[in-house]
């Protein structure tokens, strides 16, 4: 195949620039002919500062071979803006490229630049839909989540953007309750990014979130994501851990309690739960430490159990917690 730029009369006026002149580089990469050709011409247009339709084609060519080529992205962005090409078209092309190269920083950053330039809530709303399809295939993709969160705060539209986020998280956690990215997103929506419409009553919001976390813990108690959420919600709202003592205790026992009484505030471990749950033991020790006084000894007892039996990998850490608590006591 010869569709090299070097053989293309359209590019005859550009002087290609080889990567290394007069240097015998260490650790060289064996590029394909096509890649070498495209990047030689790319260096040529960067040097002359050319921004033209053919540069758009060239940067796309480089990006398709190496989406992490941040300079190609940078030059592409400058060219898009200088030529005032349709940002919608650019975004459409990006849909394809993003789907191919999900794990690349630059793919997402370029979208962000285009969205910023578009400055349209309509476009932002469409982005949320697109991102949903991306997350269907890769529900923990870091860049995708980070970008989604940026869309939400940057365009900050309660009705059109924020309103769908909590139900969306619930959908995802329904599918996989251990998806930590979804848990983080929920925290982001409910607690970190200001107050959502309808959530103005903060006490009510906290109650709802505690119930949500508890219910998910009951389903699969050894799920650190859910425990971290519970912990985070309490800390963020400066609510004492003792608020949830009654909930935590049954998860620290070896067997679920024999009871027919249903306490909606404190759902019991599921039938399949593997107890005691290490995260619950840790939580209960934190509750005791918070209470202080005589309870410190009970915390120490749990930490010893964790250190020597239940969570020996973190022995040093649990011993540190004992020293730390006794020093403060």
């Amino acid at each position: 195949m010869s569709d090299l730029l070097a053989d293309d009369s359209e590019w005859a006026d550009v002087v290609p620039i080889r990567q290394y002149e007069n240097v015998n580089p260490i650790a060289p990469i064996f590029y394909s002919e096509e890649y070498k050709d495209a990047t030689d011409y790319f260096r040529g247009v960067v040097k002359t500062g050319e921004m033209s339709p053919r540069v758009l084609k060239l940067t796309e060519r480089v990006i398709r071979m190496n989406p992490a080529h941040y300079t190609a992205w940078q030059h592409r962005y400058k060219t898009v803006m200088a030529l005032q090409v349709s940002l919608e078209d650019e975004l459409e092309l990006m849909d394809e490229i993003a789907t191919m190269f999900l794990k690349t920083y630059q793919v997402w950053h370029h979208r962000r630049l285009i969205l910023t330039a578009l400055n349209s809530v309509d476009a932002a709303a469409r982005e949320l839909v697109f991102l949903k399809t991306v997350l269907e295939n890769d529900s923990k993709n870091y860049h995708t989540w980070s970008y989604r969160q940026w869309i939400l705060v940057h365009f900050n539209d309660e009705e059109r953007l924020w309103a769908g986020e909590r139900p969306y998280v619930e959908e995802l956690l329904e599918e996989d309750v251990r998806n930590n990215s979804a848990w983080h997103h929920r925290f982001f929506v409910v607690f970190s990014s200001g107050v959502r419409a309808g959530d103005e009553d903060r006490e009510q919001t906290l109650r709802r979130e505690l119930s949500f976390a508890k219910e998910k813990i009951a389903l699969a108690p050894n799920n650190l994501s859910a425990w971290n959420y519970l912990r985070g919600a309490l800390e963020h709202t400066h609510t004492p851990f003792t608020t949830v003592t009654a909930f935590v205790e049954p998860y620290t026992a070896s067997e679920p309690p024999a009871t027919d009484v249903v306490d909606l505030d404190n759902p019991l471990p599921s039938a399949g739960a593997q107890l005691p749950c290490v995260a619950a033991l840790e939580f209960l020790a934190d509750i005791y430490e918070e209470e202080g006084g005589e309870k410190t000894a009970k915390a120490v007892e749990i930490w010893k159990l964790l250190a020597n039996e239940k969570d020996t990998m973190r022995k040093k850490y649990w011993e540190h917690r004992i020293r730390d608590a006794l020093q403060k006591a």
Binding site: I26, A27, I29, F30, S32, M65, N66, A68
Partner: peptide
């Protein structure tokens, strides 16, 4: 081997990370 013989084509994805390849090595 990376230093002496160079890196195979799949390392093209690191073309914009050349100093990293050098530093790691």
């Amino acid at each position: 081997r990376n230093l002496r013989q160079g890196l195979p084509e799949r390392y093209t994805s690191q073309d914009a990370s050349q100093p990293w390849l050098i530093y790691w090595t």
